[in-house]
C-alpha cells in the first residue's frame, strides 16, 4: 500500500470569483514508504500547491489525500496530527526562525506535539547532528548563525518532529555550491538512515539527478510524469517542451547518440558519463575514481 497518495485532486484558487484559477487538476500520485522523490516543474506548474496538499495546508476542492490509506480530511480537527506525520520545510525556511536559542527553535515542533522534555532534548540533539550543526551552536541565538547554518537549523526543526514524510521546498535555493552540497548530502544520509519518505522540490535537474530515486514532473497543474530517475532523462524532448532543462552531461551523451556513438540514454551524472565513455575511448574497462 502506498504511504501517501492523492486521488483525483483538484485545487482552485479564488473559487467563485472571476479570478478563479486551477492550481492542480485531477492529480493522482502514489508515493511508497522510504522513497526519495524529486518534484520538478517550472513556476506556476503547481509544485507548491501539490506539496501543501500532502500535509493539509491546502484542502482539495475535489478528490482525496490518503495517508496510510486514510483520508487526511476525515476528521478536520485532527489535521494537526497529519502535519506532524507529514513534515514540511518551506522555501527560505531560515526566515521563520523566531526563538531565543537554536535549541528552543528546533524544539518548537516537538513541543507542539506534546512530547516529554527528555524526548524533546533527545530529538533536538539528534536532528542538529543530522543537519551538521555543532552542539555548541544550540545555545546561541538563531540570528547569530551564518546563512547556511540558519537554513540547516530550520530544517532540523522539522526533522525533530520525526515525520514519516519529509517535504522540502527548494532547500538549496540561494545557497553557494558548498552550502548546497552540504544540505543535499545531509538529507540523503538522513533518508537512508531513517527510511523516511522524502519529497524534494527543486528547479535544478542536477540536484534532483543526484539524490532522487523517482521524479515527479508537474506541468500546468497536472502530473506529467512519475518515473525512476534513470529513465526520466531519456525523455529529453518532452522535458524541454515543458520548459525544463536536462543536465549538461545528458545532453552530451544524447548528441553523441545522434551522431551514431553507442552510448546509453539514461546517464545523468558526470561520473556515470565518464564510466560509460571510458571503455569506448580506451577499449577496456577502467575504474574511475
Amino acid at each position: 500500500m502506498a504511504l501517501i497518495e492523492t486521488r483525483n485532486c483538484t485545487v482552485r484558487y479564488s473559487s467563485g470569483t472571476p479570478f478563479e484559477k486551477e492550481a492542480l487538476s485531477d492529480v493522482s500520485v502514489c508515493i511508497e514508504e522510504g522513497e526519495f522523490v524529486g518534484v520538478i516543474g517550472h513556476t506556476g506548474s503547481g509544485k507548491s500547491s501539490f506539496v501543501q496538499l500532502l500535509n493539509g495546508l491546502l484542502k482539495p476542492d475535489s478528490g482525496t489525500v490518503l495517508l496510510d490509506g486514510r483520508d487526511i480530511w476525515e476528521q478536520p480537527k485532527d489535521i494537526r496530527r497529519v502535519r506532524f506525520e507529514v513534515g514540511m520545510v518551506f522555501q527560505y525556511p531560515e526566515y521563520q526562525l523566531f526563538e531565543e536559542t537554536v535549541y528552543k527553535d528546533i524544539a518548537f515542533g516537538p513541543q507542539n506535539m506534546g512530547l516529554s522534555d527528555e524526548e524533546i532534548r533527545e530529538r533536538v540533539h539528534t536532528a542538529a547532528k543530522w543537519v551538521g550543526l555543532k552542539p555548541e551552536l544550540l545555545a546561541k541565538s538563531p540570528f547569530e548563525l551564518s546563512g547556511g547554518e540558519k537554513r540547516r537549523a530550520a530544517i532540523a526543526g522539522v526533522m525533530a518532529m520525526r515525520p514519516r514524510v519529509l517535504i522540502l521546498d527548494e532547500p538549496t535555493a540561494g545557497l553557494d555550491p558548498r552550502g548546497r552540497d552540504m544540505i543535499l548530502n545531509r538529507i540523503r544520509a538522513y533518508q537512508q538512515e531513517f527510511h523516511t519518505t522524502v519529497l524534494l522540490v527543486s528547479h535544478s535537474m542536477e540536484d534532483i539527478a543526484r539524490v532522487a530515486d523517482r521524479v515527479l514532473v508537474l506541468n500546468r497543474g497536472s502530473a506529467a510524469m512519475l518515473e525512476p530517475t534513470e529513465t526520466l532523462f531519456s525523455h529529453v524532448t518532452q522535458l524541454e517542451s515543458m520548459g525544463l532543462s536536462v543536465p549538461a552531461v545528458t545532453r552530451i551523451l544524447l548528441k553523441l547518440r545522434e551522431r551514431g556513438v553507442a552510448v546509453p540514454d539514461h546517464v545523468y551524472t558526470v561520473e556515470d558519463a565518464a564510466r560509460v565513455l571510458l571503455p569506448l575511448l580506451k577499449g577496456g574497462d577502467i575504474h574511475v575514481g
Binding site: 553557494d176 549538461a248 558519463a273 565518464a274 565513455l277 575511448l281 580506451k282 577502467i286 574511475v288
Partner: peptide, 20 residues
Amino acid sequence: NELDVPQPTELCHLLRRAGV
C-alpha cells in the same frame, strides 16, 4: 575552493585523468 565546474569541463577532466 568548493566551486562548481561546468559539467562538460568536468567530464573531460575525469577522462583526462583516466588517460584519455
